[in-house]
Every structure is written in structure tokens, then in C-alpha cells.
Amino acid sequence: MRDDGGFVELSRGVFRQADAPPPRWPDLLAVAYRAPVAVVCCVSALVVHDMTDEIPSAVQIAVPRPSRPPRIDHPPTEIFRFAEATFEVGVSMVEAAPGENARVYGPERTIVDVMRLRHRLGESLAFGAMRRYLRRGDARPGQLLAFARDLGVFVPVRAALDVVSAE
């Protein structure tokens, strides 16, 4: 049926009907089916929440630390391993295609994660994302600080929040 055009392959073993409404986030949809426990994080989550103009070269996902990371060749993925105790903190859903969801960290958790990983992802990305977050009408700095406290990075997030707010 795939060869006849009835189905479209998103990833190995993940198919959609060719006449289904087009997905908004096809790569996230493919990853969600291939790794249902995984959560879209970091730059990929920033893109979903419109907090960066960067386009990641791979879908960035988090998995809980003791579990085995999924092996996904297409779409390209980058795996982060987060502590099991805080893995579910801040998880929300995004509609990757009509009626089909993918797990993604919410805006506040994403900002905190990018700040935690700023040595790997870049400080300019972290500060730029925080700046865009704070300009949003739905920004919740208190929630941001609560997540920072839960994830053990309260001091650097608070300092960054002070700097960005003063601009």
C-alpha cells in the first residue's frame, strides 16, 4: 500500500494515510510513535514554543536516565538523559497532526533545561530564549523559578532572569 501511494512512511515502522491531514510537526510525530516515553526538549521544544529562530539539525528528545535511549535514524534525533525523579516535571502536549499529540516540555521547563545545558547548547541561545519568553503575554517568571528550584539551577536561572529583565 505504501508503494501504491496509500500510505506515507514517516519513520521506520511509522506510517500515515496519504490522505490524512498534513502534520504540523511531522518529525515530532514520527519520534512520538517511535519513542512514546520520550519528551521533546531543548532547541526542538524552543521551536515548538516559538522561543527561537534556530532550526535544530535533529529532533532533541529526553528520556529518563535509567532507561535505554531509543535508536532512531530518521528523523535524526539527539538524545538527552534526564533524571528519572524530575523527568515528568513540566511535560505538556503539542498537536503534531490533527488528533495526534507529541509529548513536549512546556515553555518554563524548556527555558530551565536550556539554562541547565547552556554549556552544551550555548549561552546566547539560553539568554535569547529567556528574553523571548519574558516578552510573551503568558510568561510566568514565578513558575520558571519554581522549575529552576526543582531542577537544582535556581541561582543561575535567577541571575539570568535578573539580567534579561533589566534590559
Rank of each mutant, 00 (worst) to 15 (best):
V48P: 01
P22I: 05
V40T: 13
L151N: 07
S92E: 15
A85W: 07
R109G: 06
A146N: 13
V164D: 05
V39G: 02
V157H: 01
D150P: 06
W25S: 03
R65I: 04
R109Y: 04
M115F: 07
V43R: 10
C41H: 06
P76I: 01
E123A: 12
E167V: 09
Q143W: 10
F87N: 12
E123M: 13
V94K: 03
G106R: 14
A38G: 08
S44F: 07
G13Y: 02
L46R: 06
H49I: 03
D19A: 10
H49T: 03
G6P: 01
R131S: 15
A58N: 09
Q17F: 13
E95W: 02
G99W: 03
D27L: 03
E95Q: 11
A102N: 04
L28D: 03
R12M: 02
V63R: 06
L145N: 10
D113A: 01
L144C: 08
I111Q: 00
L121Q: 07
R12S: 09
P23T: 02
D27Y: 06
G142R: 13
R71N: 07
A35C: 08
R65T: 09
R2D: 12
T52N: 02
L144D: 07
N101R: 14
H49S: 02
S165H: 00
M1S: 15
L117S: 11
P26T: 05
D138A: 15
S67L: 12
G13I: 06
R65V: 03
P156G: 11
A45L: 08
P98R: 14
R24Y: 06
A85F: 04
M1R: 14
E167Y: 08
E78M: 11
R131C: 06
A160Q: 05
L46F: 09
L144W: 10
A18I: 02
A32Q: 10
L46W: 04
L145S: 10
V89H: 15
V89N: 15
R120W: 02
E54M: 10
A45D: 04
R65G: 00
A45Y: 07
P75D: 05
F87R: 12
S44L: 09
D150Q: 15
L121P: 05
V47Y: 00
V164A: 03
E108L: 03
F80I: 00
D113H: 06
A20L: 12
H49M: 04
A62R: 01
T77A: 04
Q17H: 12
P70I: 01
P21Q: 12
V94Q: 01
V14D: 02
R120G: 01
A148S: 10
V94H: 01
S57Y: 12
H74Q: 14
C42Q: 14
H119M: 12
A35F: 05
C42R: 12
R135C: 08
D53R: 11
V153F: 11
D4F: 14
G152S: 09
L161S: 06
D19F: 04
D113G: 02
E95N: 07
G137T: 15
E100K: 11
P22R: 14
A85E: 15
R120H: 08
L10H: 02
D27H: 12
M93K: 14
L10I: 08
M115E: 07
H74G: 05
R109A: 02
M93C: 08
V39S: 04
G5T: 11
V48S: 06
G142I: 09
L145Q: 10
F7G: 00
H119W: 15
A38T: 10
R135L: 14
A126N: 05
G90M: 02
P98A: 13
S124W: 05
A18R: 08
R158W: 11
P36C: 04
P70R: 00
